[in-house]
Design a protein around this nucleic acid. Structure first.
Lengths: 154, 154
DNA sequence: CACGAAAGGTTGCTAATGCAACTACTTTTT
DNA sequence: AAAAAGTAGTTGCATTAGCAACCTTTCGTG
């Protein structure tokens, strides 16, 4: 149990990178009527084409209320439409509009540019390593929270 | 320019880890009257003992308004006091209370536990690597944002 | 089939955070 | 020394995000 003298933990840098990414991407996407928070949902739709809100929330591990509000903004800005689900009247299928599809390359390139900025001085190997480690941390975090929830409602 | 088919970028996992960390730490610190957002300022004070808000904002790369509000909450909860600066009447020195010092081991241990959870299945080497890579990403992010600001006000 | 549980969404509330604008002191320039 | 520029903090506003509570529809079991 060494005395951790300086505040240099993973979490400290993680939150810095996250905040700065948020700032940069918010500013960059602003001119397209997009907020940083909506982009991740677009990314899911670019891959899956049609999804219910519930499905998107699950894939991204994001709360369903956050999902609902992000989808609403995307709809307001003309990036997605919602059509009734064929068999379940509770849910809606969220679909991309032509506008969103036109913007796909642009959006991907903005995200990629930011990733490149973050890993500017990384070797190719390090670039691969960091994604892998972050993914494992995310997996561990998710497992822990799920476990806490499980305990709570036992 | 390979087609990045799945949304597996560093940023995606980074934001997941960040959000889950926020959730876990908020919940854990809640019973001490602390929010996740205030803890990083306490960590700075544990190391530097006395700081102006400006100094804390700089160390953490956090906006001064966020700093002001975090300090206010810490003051309201009895973790810090503010005393007038000896030579500059614009600023205040933020100092820890006995209550905060008593809680220091507890707070460090909660943060460390979460780090351990995130890196549960990491080798010792990987634990070191991930902090280093995150720190470099943070440095790159900060440099980029500073550069954008510089351009703006030219 | 009916009733209760579960699932998909929405609304109200709260926290952390950044930006713009403002006040109040300090330092620099002329 | 007076005016200009810069620094420390604060307040108002907006965004992302989660939680609790609620509504509506669907499903499962007696």
């Amino acid at each position: 149990m060494e005395n951790q003298r300086s505040y240099e933990s993973a979490g400290r840098w993680l939150s810095t990178v996250h905040r700065y990414g948020y700032m940069h991407l918010s500013k960059t996407f602003d001119e397209y009527g997009l907020g940083e928070g909506q982009v991740k949902f677009l990314m899911v739709l670019f891959e899956k084409k049609e999804q219910t809100q519930e499905q998107m929330a699950n894939v991204l591990n994001i709360d369903k209320t956050t999902t609902a509000r992000a989808v609403k903004k995307l709809e307001d800005e003309g990036y997605v439409t919602r059509k009734p689900h064929a068999t379940d009247r509770r849910s809606h299928l969220v679909c991309l509009t032509a506008k969103a599809l036109d913007m796909e390359p642009m959006i991907r390139s903005i995200l990629k540019d930011w990733t490149n900025t973050l890993t500017e001085d990384f070797t190719d190997e390090e670039k691969v390593i960091v994604v892998g480690l972050l993914k494992r941390m995310a997996t561990n975090a998710i497992a822990k929270i799920k476990q806490e929830e499980g305990v709570k409602e036992k």
